[in-house]
Design a protein around this nucleic acid. Structure first.
Length: 315
RNA sequence: CUGCUCGUUU
């Protein structure tokens, strides 16, 4: 069953729900019963693709089959609803899980808090932070990261700082996500110096920068017209064992485009091919926009055809 | 074996 669940998870993450359901059939025929994890995997797959109604259908189905939803099941649905901005429904589900005898976990609260943060309702976000504490659920590092993220993006650095102090007072240390939030915040406001200072601090603290970190740094360097440094950074980290992903490539391509170097941008596209990273609509949008701005409308047309050939839908 | 927080184009 574990092995089937792992395969079903892969299919769901790729959005291949038909195949995933076929697999459930195969596992039953082979004598393995789908368990709560199997259902949770499918429900989460649907939720993370924004197909909440499908998730709710499976949610009903599992109950009929005598499998009881747990905090993961509810968590996936709450998160899916919150991501869609359907916060009151998210809150309803949290209440519903309590009615069904489950105790909401920090993860469940964090999903709601993040939802309210993304709505810009910090009042309610902090309200649920207080609520979780009241119910005896301790805020986690993710809780802090969620709150720090929205405070920092809103420019409320002081409040963000005091939250960091509070968190450290509880014995939690800034992790890679915390640093990425701070670094990216400075990158978005074009503060190269602060961003790199935090990178240094991160290294001193023994925290490994991630692709996310490098993407933010490449972004700020290219916006600051320091494309050479951006490209050098990319080259250096990939040489040192970081496998660039789609987003990192897209940031680099965008940098070349913004800095008017379409030849380099296109050669990065080729490098993606060599490294077996599939370009997506962001890649093509970026390149086509760059080419058009450069007056190379014909080349842009060619790329549009190429993306259609690859089955990527243009917008 | 499954759920929460950070990065790229418009």
């Amino acid at each position: 069953t574990h092995t089937f669940n792992i395969m079903i998870n892969v299919l769901c993450k790729e959005g291949k729900f038909k195949k995933a359901m076929e697999f459930v059939g195969v596992m039953e025929i082979s004598g393995f019963k789908p368990n709560v994890v199997t259902y949770n995997t499918i429900i989460n797959g649907y939720c993370s693709k924004g197909k909440i109604e499908n998730a709710r259908r499976i949610f009903g189905e599992m109950k009929v089959r005598g499998i009881y939803p747990d905090s993961y099941t509810y968590g996936s649905i709450i998160n899916g609803l919150c991501k869609e901005g359907r916060l009151d429904e998210g809150v309803e589900f949290l209440d519903k899980m309590v009615e069904n005898g489950l105790v909401p976990t920090a993860v469940n609260f964090n999903a709601l808090i993040d939802g309210f943060c993304n709505k810009g309702d910090l009042e309610k976000a902090f309200g649920y932070r207080d609520e979780m504490v009241k119910r005896g659920v301790a805020p986690t590092l993710s809780t802090y990261n969620v709150l720090i993220h929205s405070l920092f993006m809103e420019g409320k650095d002081g409040t963000a700082d005091s939250l960091i102090k509070e968190m450290e007072g509880k014995g939690m240390k800034k992790d890679d996500v915390t640093y990425n939030i701070l670094i990216n915040g400075y990158c978005q406001s074009g503060n190269v110096k602060k961003a790199f200072e935090l990178l240094d601090e991160m290294l001193v603290e023994g925290i490994q920068p991630t692709r996310v970190t490098y993407t933010s740094l490449i972004y700020v360097l290219s916006k600051s017209r320091r494309m050479k440094e951006a490209a050098d950074l990319f080259e250096k980290v990939t040489r040192n064992g970081v496998t660039p992903d789609l987003v990192m490539f897209n940031a680099l391509i965008n940098g070349h485009c913004v800095n008017g170097n379409m030849e380099q941008a296109l050669s990065v596209l080729k490098e993606m091919g060599r490294r077996k990273v599939r370009p997506d609509e962001v890649t093509y949008n970026t390149l086509m926009q760059g080419l058009c701005r450069d007056g190379k409308v014909e080349e842009a047309r060619r790329l549009l055809d190429e993306m259609k050939e690859k089955g990527i839908s243009p917008d």
